[in-house]
């Protein structure tokens, strides 16, 4: 990678992290989703396990995923079945905020034109922006994952006296599905940003990406659809291929004239 592209990536990263308001917004929502929300579940099952609805739910759970105790089984379900879905949402949110501010934001503030006068092709600028947004969303995903694991495991250990090992799905989620979805989100936002005139306009596009994830969350909560490792793997491969195609198609589309409109 050219050092000039690295300079853009570094600058974009700094642009987000230096803007405390924006950066805390990027971090707070994922942390609420991945720490606050499951903690409530864990406390709930510890202090109110006799609820008849929970008993009914337990009867439906396949034996293979049941742990020694009732509490641990439910906690395991939360960690391994409910939480992964949030890790599909986090990269979309982060990537859209970052991509919108780094591409449309530059257009809005008239700094994109200056960048275009530099000895980089539109493709290289586009690639640097995609990499920057992608890396940030991966960073936020990983921070969220590790803080979630540390906090939930501590809670579970102290409340239920044992540790839960996260399932294999997490590897697929963190290394395949989540990066692929982040890439799709970034590419779509950057693609749309050539036409969008404001950051808000381009962020609105990201809402359409959230819809399928919200449906998955509903499916997961109501038990209509339980994502197994295999389904996740297929979903991940599909998203990765889609991301690659979108990226390839978008790269060739941009011209200076189009961006300066």
């Amino acid at each position: 990678m050219k050092s000039s592209m690295f300079a853009i990536i570094k600058k974009d990263f700094r642009g987000i992290t230096a803007n405390k308001r924006l950066f805390s917004a990027i971090l707070i929502v994922p942390l609420i989703l991945t720490i606050f929300l499951p903690s409530i579940f864990v406390f709930l099952i510890h202090f109110a396990p006799d609820d008849p609805d929970i008993q009914k739910l337990l009867q439906m759970i396949p034996l293979s995923i049941q742990y020694d105790s009732l509490e641990l089984t439910i906690a395991g379900m939360i960690i391994n079945y409910i939480m992964p879905i949030f890790f599909l949402m986090i990269p979309i949110m982060t990537a859209s905020i970052m991509a919108a501010s780094s591409f449309v934001g530059e257009k809005e503030k008239h700094t994109l034109e200056t960048l275009l006068y530099c000895p980089l092709s539109v493709k290289q600028i586009f690639r640097s922006k995609v990499i920057a947004s992608f890396l940030l969303s991966m960073m936020v995903s990983l921070i969220s994952f590790f803080s979630m694991i540390i906090i939930l495991e501590t809670e579970i250990f102290f409340l239920m006296g044992s540790l839960l090992i996260p399932s294999i799905s997490w590897i697929i989620i963190l290394l395949l599905v989540s990066p692929a979805i982040a890439l799709i989100a970034v590419t779509l936002i950057v693609r749309g940003s050539a036409k969008a005139q404001s950051v808000e306009e381009s962020q609105q596009g990201a809402i359409f990406l959230i819809i399928p994830v919200v449906l998955l969350i509903i499916g997961q909560f109501t038990g209509l659809l339980l994502l197994s490792s295999w389904i996740l793997l297929i979903l991940g491969v599909f998203c990765a291929i889609l991301a690659w195609i979108l990226l390839k198609k978008s790269m060739g589309r941009f011209t200076y004239e189009m961006l300066l409109k």
């Binding site: 600058k11 642009g15 700094t111 034109e113």
Partner: peptide
């Protein structure tokens, strides 16, 4: 229209 970054 070739501006620079306000945050730097």
């Amino acid at each position: 229209h070739a501006q620079m970054y306000d945050n730097l």
